[in-house]
């Protein structure tokens, strides 16, 4: 059964001056899915997100959040939306609690009970009465999420949620976002310029460049057949000969050999190499780099 559509964007355009920044975006978000917005800096991710949350007026096109058109029923639409646009900028001179209280007062029917709930959910209960200026970036990020979740939104929009976090923080954030989507049934839209992040986090992804969506697909489909395997062999020429007989190889300048990534065949190739007396010094699965993916998808067009 198809899940319910929570966020629907149709032919969204934005013209600033004479330049068309966003050239007709169309996509839908469904309940319980994490949707990635992938593109290089300057592709129009942030502009699009700002249109989705009502900070910028679209030149044309429509945005529906849970059935309410943002241009006609701003209150009704924004009721179901939680967001962090760029960094979670909160009032540094207020305590975490007062920040949450401040934003809770702007929502109907959100009381102290809910503030306690979200504080516990993001694990900030101990420091919630400290001033925000004493918080670490990770804590601010969590407070930002708590703020976004206050109104029990159906749609959560996060712009570069792992920006500036340390590896532990990134992992924590990723797990938390997956939890929100899977357990709480939220639709989460995440933007990023890092392919690896999107790959680990998202169910579906839209690739955006120069204000248009190049492709929307599930992560598996987009990345299948694009992953590579990197081999470092000794002795090199013998190894090259053996491996070359098994599959297509590509020789790189740094003395490695690249083949396609194939889960079934890799152990077999490895066995053959070892049997031929070649030491396998390194076997490494390599993600396609965003740039390569772009080159492939855009047919050689460069990213600005």
């Amino acid at each position: 059964m198809e899940k319910k559509i929570t966020l629907s964007v149709k032919d969204l355009r934005k013209v600033i001056g004479r330049r068309e920044i966003i050239k007709g975006l169309t996509f839908d978000l469904r309940e319980g899915e994490v949707f990635g917005f992938l593109g290089p800096n300057g592709a129009g991710k942030t502009t699009t997100i700002r249109m989705l949350v009502g900070l910028i007026k679209p030149t044309s096109g429509s945005i529906h959040i849970c059935g309410s058109n943002i241009a006609e029923d701003f209150k009704g639409a924004l009721k179901n939306l939680g967001c962090i646009v760029e960094n979670p900028e909160l009032y540094p001179y207020l305590s975490g609690y007062n920040n949450l209280l401040h934003f809770a007062r702007m929502l109907d029917g959100v009381g102290e009970g809910r503030i306690k709930e979200v504080t516990a959910l993001v694990g900030l209960s101990e420091r919630i009465h400290d001033k925000v200026k004493t918080y670490s970036l990770g804590m601010r990020q969590r407070l930002g999420i708590a703020q976004a979740l206050l109104g029990n939104p159906k749609v959560l929009i996060l712009d570069e949620p792992t920006n500036g976090l340390d590896p532990a923080g990134i992992r924590e954030m990723r797990e938390f976002i997956r939890f929100l989507a899977e357990q709480e049934g939220l639709s989460v839209l995440v933007s990023s310029h890092l392919l690896s992040e999107i790959q680990l986090l998202c169910d579906r992804v839209a690739i955006i460049a120069k204000g248009t969506i190049i492709r929307t697909d599930t992560v598996q489909k987009l990345l299948s057949n694009r992953e590579k395997m990197v081999w470092r062999l000794d002795p090199f020429f013998k190894g090259k000969e053996v491996l070359g007989a098994l599959t297509g190889i590509e020789e790189k300048e740094d003395g490695t050999l690249w083949t396609e990534y194939n889960e079934q065949m890799t152990p077999e190739w490895n066995k053959q190499l070892v049997e031929a007396g070649v030491s396998v010094l390194e076997m490494n699965r390599k993600m396609p780099v965003l740039e390569d993916l772009f080159l492939e998808l855009t047919g050689g067009e460069t990213i600005e």
Partner: peptide, 14 residues
């Protein structure tokens, strides 16, 4: 300058 305007204007308040 704090950037909080983004939070302030994305609430369901006109």
């Amino acid at each position: 300058s704090l950037g909080t305007v983004k939070l302030l204007l994305t609430r369901p308040v006109n």
